[in-house]
C-alpha cells in the first residue's frame, strides 16, 4: 500500500495542488495528473532531453525528477516561457528557422535553449569553452552544439536548431 503525499507547485505561472504517490516523476505528474502535455516523454531515462523543463529557472530533466522532491518549486514548460500566452524569442527563432520537423523534441529543445542561453550569459563554461579560466562565453555554433547535446532530435533538425539558438542568443 502506498500513501500519497500532498504537493504544491507552480506550473507555467499557475499554482497547482495535488496528491502524488512518491514514485511519480515530475514528468508524469505534469502529463498524467495535471494534463500539462508540453514536456514529452522520449526515453524516460535521462537520455534524450524531450522532457526538459525549467525548475526554479534552471533546465532539468523532468523524467529523472521525483515530483515530491519539488514541493514548492516553480516549473516552467515551453508553453509558459513568455508572459500572458505570448511567444518567447527562442520559440520565435525556432519557427523562423524551421528548427523542427515532427516537433516531438521541440518543447524540450526550446526549454533547453532558454536554459543554455541563460547559463552562457551568466558565464558558465562548457566543454567547448576555449578559455576555461575566462569569464565570458561567446555562443558560437560549437558552443551551442555542445550545450544542446543533451537534446536529441530523431528528425535530425540539428543544423537549424543551432541556427535558431544562435539567432535567439544574439537578440
Amino acid at each position: 500500500m502506498t500513501t500519497t503525499i500532498p504537493l504544491s507547485i507552480t506550473v507555467d505561472g499557475e499554482q497547482r495542488d495535488l496528491d502524488v504517490d512518491p514514485r511519480t516523476t515530475l514528468l508524469d505528474a505534469l502529463r498524467e495528473r495535471l494534463a500539462v502535455t508540453t514536456p514529452k516523454k522520449g526515453c524516460d531515462h535521462g537520455q534524450c532531453g524531450a522532457c526538459t523543463v525549467l525548475v526554479d529557472g534552471r533546465r532539468v530533466l523532468s523524467c529523472l525528477t521525483l515530483a515530491v522532491a519539488k514541493d514548492g518549486a516553480d516549473v516552467v514548460t515551453a508553453n509558459g516561457l513568455a508572459p500572458d500566452g505570448g511567444s518567447h524569442p527562442v520559440t520565435e527563432a525556432f519557427l523562423a528557422n524551421d528548427a523542427f520537423q515532427c516537433g516531438y523534441c521541440t518543447p524540450g529543445q526550446v526549454c533547453s535553449a532558454v536554459g543554455a542561453i541563460d547559463e552562457a550569459r551568466r558565464g558558465m563554461p562548457s566543454a567547448a569553452t576555449a578559455d576555461l579560466a575566462g569569464d565570458d562565453v561567446v555562443l558560437d555554433r560549437a558552443e551551442i552544439a555542445e550545450r544542446m547535446s543533451g537534446n536529441l532530435c530523431r528528425c535530425a533538425a540539428y543544423v537549424n536548431i543551432v541556427t535558431a539558438v544562435e539567432e535567439a542568443a544574439s537578440r
Binding site: 532531453g49 530533466l61 529523472l64 533547453s112 543554455a116 543533451g150
Partner: peptide, 8 residues
C-alpha cells in the same frame, strides 16, 4: 553528461 543533468 549534459547541461540538464549537470544542473541536477
Amino acid at each position: 553528461a549534459s547541461g540538464q543533468l549537470r544542473n541536477m
